[in-house]
Write a protein that binds this DNA or RNA. Structure first.
Lengths: 231, 231
DNA sequence: CGTGTCTGCTTGTCAGACAATCGGGAATCT
DNA sequence: AGATTCCCGATTGTCTGACAAGCAGACACG
């Protein structure tokens, strides 16, 4: 029983470092969900988490509250937490929310980011292009890392904590979707091109064009994902 | 509609009433923050909450995690939680996020809400109008309740849990703002008119017009609030 | 075959304990 | 006096163990 479940959360011993233990645990469980080692509908049983992560139940419960608020986990009273299931309608809404909010983030980036941040955004998109060339079928791991990097730079440059927080949780939910359905058919080249358009508009300091390019990108991603989805 | 099942048993899914203690506590603290009994910058000391709310520390800590994720409370490691302080830039961004997302919610409402929900939305806005007439200076308590009601109906009709969750936290943050600065000069009549425009567009099933009216409303509210704000 | 009961697992909550850390004030040095 | 150092109390972070309450499935019963 144990041998199977432990491997889900990665290497065992959890040692105390600078950040609160709680945050490390949150990250581990979050990653387990986003990497689809825990799939939508799976229950998160406190005792199991306690045993496998070697932390107290109090800590586990705090972690669950955090993930609940992020929407990655759904808690029904007296029955505990399970990985959130998203309907097709939810999926569409989440993509639409992301579209409008990322457009806003891009506008803020144009307004607020300095030269260096623009350069780094360019570098990030170049990296995406590179990984997309290597990628054959679906998204590779490198591809995902590169995209994360891109968004890190983007959010940092938009210099808005509220925006960043909200978009982070939305993006997490999108990844949940990826775990729900089969992985997206992977249109890495198109995606790279679309993001390139965003960066070019940003470099031209054209907020509106950049925002539109951004919306276009998400709409396309949404369309690609939605065709894969069932009910 | 399946007239048989619903009418006999009342409102569809039996909703849990006996909420976990934790949720009651969360609500209390949240209200304390939203009503500005706890002001931005105030520390939330676990021991004090334990004593005042008569619950265990474990419960208090879970509540703090929830509020942290809602953005109402900011936790710095080893120093505990304090009511979030929002900068003027944050304020602007939050209003802008609300504008685009509520526009989306309104569109969804037009697509998804049934006749009855539209009627209830109308009723809610009428109630707002009524309270705005009574109101002299700033927003009265009735005014706030009426607006909450309006948004409850709106969100329910848009039938999107992700949207609803996100908008709820955004709205909470706006109220935080209200506590940060002086209360908004109160433009209850204008607000009522603007919301009326939204409802009329909804009744005409004109999603785009409704969305635009909604954006206009929030932009105006934002402008009114922002003039009050310092750095 | 439907119904009622029992049992085990899980969640919700509590109390108490201890180490680590932070902030501020006292004591000290220059 | 002013700056620096040190120490202490308050507070957070985490753990352990405990118990009631609720749910779900097994089981026995009419």
């Amino acid at each position: 029983m144990d041998g199977v479940t432990t491997s889900v959360w990665g290497p065992d011993p959890l040692t105390r470092v600078a950040a609160p233990l709680r945050e490390q645990v949150t990250e581990r469980v979050r990653n387990a969900i986003l990497d689809a080692r825990l799939r939508p509908g799976d229950r998160l049983i406190e005792r199991e988490l306690v045993e496998n992560l070697r932390v107290s139940r109090a800590t586990v419960r705090e972690v669950i509250r955090e993930l609940e608020a992020e929407g990655l986990v759904t808690v029904v009273p007296q029955r505990g937490a399970q990985v959130t299931r998203l309907s097709a309608a939810d999926a569409a809404d989440i993509y639409e929310m992301r579209a409008t909010l990322e457009a806003l983030a891009v506008r803020r980036f144009v307004q607020r980011a300095d030269e260096d941040q623009v350069r780094r955004l360019r570098a990030a998109v170049e990296e995406i292009k590179r990984t997309s060339r290597r990628a054959k079928g679906g998204d590779s791991h490198d591809q995902l890392v590169a995209k994360d990097r891109f968004y890190d730079v983007l959010f940092e440059g938009s210099a808005s904590l509220p925006l960043q927080q909200t978009l982070n949780t939305l993006q997490a939910r999108v990844r949940l979707l990826r775990a729900t359905s089969l992985s997206v058919p992977g249109r890495p080249k198109e995606a790279a091109k679309e993001l390139l358009a965003v960066v070019e508009a940003v470099e031209a300091r054209d907020a509106e064009r950049a925002a539109e390019a951004c919306v276009l990108h998400i709409r396309n991603a949404s369309a690609a994902a939605t065709t894969q989805l069932g009910p």
